[in-house]
Design a protein around this nucleic acid. Sequence first.
DNA 1: ATGTGC
Length: 549
Amino acid sequence: MHAHGLPPTRITIALNTNQTQRAPLLLPSSACTDPNSPTSIRNLVFKAAQSKLRIKKPSRVFIAGSGAELVGEEDWKSGVRNDVSLLVSAGEDYVGVNRDAGVHPQANPTCPVHVLASKAALDSLALAQLHTTARTLPGLVLAVGQPDLHPGTKFPIGAVFVSRGWIHPPLIGGDIGCGMAWYKTRLARGQVEGDRGRKVAEKLRGVEGAWRTVGERAEWLRDGEREGASCAAGEEWDGSVETIGAGNHFAEVQVVEEVEKGCGLGEGEVVLLVHSGSRGYGSSILKKYTSGGQVSLKEDSAEAREYLREHDRACRWAKASRDLIALRFLSCLEPGEPAWRLGKNDADAEDVHDAIARAKAELGARRVVDIWHNNVERVKWPPLPPAGEDTNEQSAASTSSQSDAYIHRKGAAPTLSPTTSLPLSILPLPGSRGTPTLILAPQFPSSTSHGLKNALSLAHGAGRSMSRAKALSTLSQKYKASSLLEPRGGNGTWVVCEAKDLVFEEAPEAYKDVEAVGEDLVEFGAARRVGWCRARVSYKCRDERGRAG
DNA sequence: ATGTGC
């Protein structure tokens, strides 16, 4: 049996009539593809089905997904591969879901799929999710896997899907409007370096739980400039505005270590990076539009219009929430600054309306960039070359050749401003907890068809390399959970994380190498690396139950 | 990622 020394083939068998009844099966390399041989794979499958799936008289075998039946030796030779699922039948026809029959008539089986990863680790499940989504949902014209691509429950994360005529809410996910914003602080780097990071971490208190009063929260969510542009979602959800949330969300005090001149940040500056989304509000919207397993909405349907209206509101809500998080953190970091007075829940409010307006104006002045990386954006597609770059090409690809398309982003940052459609000068590419945040400048060379090949998007982070469950089980030995994680090595990061599971789930080891992710984007031509930031204090969450704050 | 699922 060790004659060939070949590894066994790993397959799954399941009942044709009930595919939830399944069992793994290892086929030794000595097993025979001829179904009539006594040592045939067929016999091994039947025996395992009898003992593990309790089917009395197995007689036929199908490949799950395609429904192809394995009959002759050629079928068994070509059909049995690692990770294939075989459905065992007692004689009845294939009753599994036939993937080909489930394809939408407006699906695009030849939808181009670009994967921008070569140095960054790639997960085969995430790749399968990317390809399956591209080929089976209606209206897709392009799918892009960013180098931080990793598997989601059904659809991948770190992915961009461009469609025409159809909107697919699950491709944005529940955290609609999630994104990142960078704010300048007036701290000097000397105030946060080395062991001073501990002091900074200790100062970050009173930033959990609801901010001030119902009325003040509603006022914050009202858009002062435009009548009726409030993004308030009702007190049911507005109570969680300005809370960071769990998962990979954080607020981080960083030092700009290196940066090219003229891109909005200066070397040695101390900045605050906020990564947060729409909490329960966005997921309530997704739920509402995906009841009964519905995935796709026809672009001009009343339902699609309603979804987009609610989606846009959740995006504004999440942006207002990031600003409010910044207000509270800045009130801790710059305690003397009058504009941040309202950041404290116990501060007296003379004229709330004025105080909020002043805080928003000052936040606007400090904000370097704020992007959504979970959203759908209506754009003219395909993208045109930048104005004045190549007049011949420009006239060939004139605006008349463009038409409406929807860019669905799930964990992918945009390269153009959604309001001006002009290139964003810089974007953050944060690593996880203590690893550097790269400063990227989006690029639009003709080699990427002016941003088309990366779907006008970049990676939004390092991307998980380990599932939360795996990180929890394998890394829990390695970290001693404490309320403040001390830096490992010289000028590392102080991490405030009073949720034990998150300590492991968000460990740097559970993520890909952010430098590799950045290099992939640079190599592809989608970005330039113009600098990096060192995280000094990373705030995830504090348990302030029963305490003032 | 989550006022967390059946």
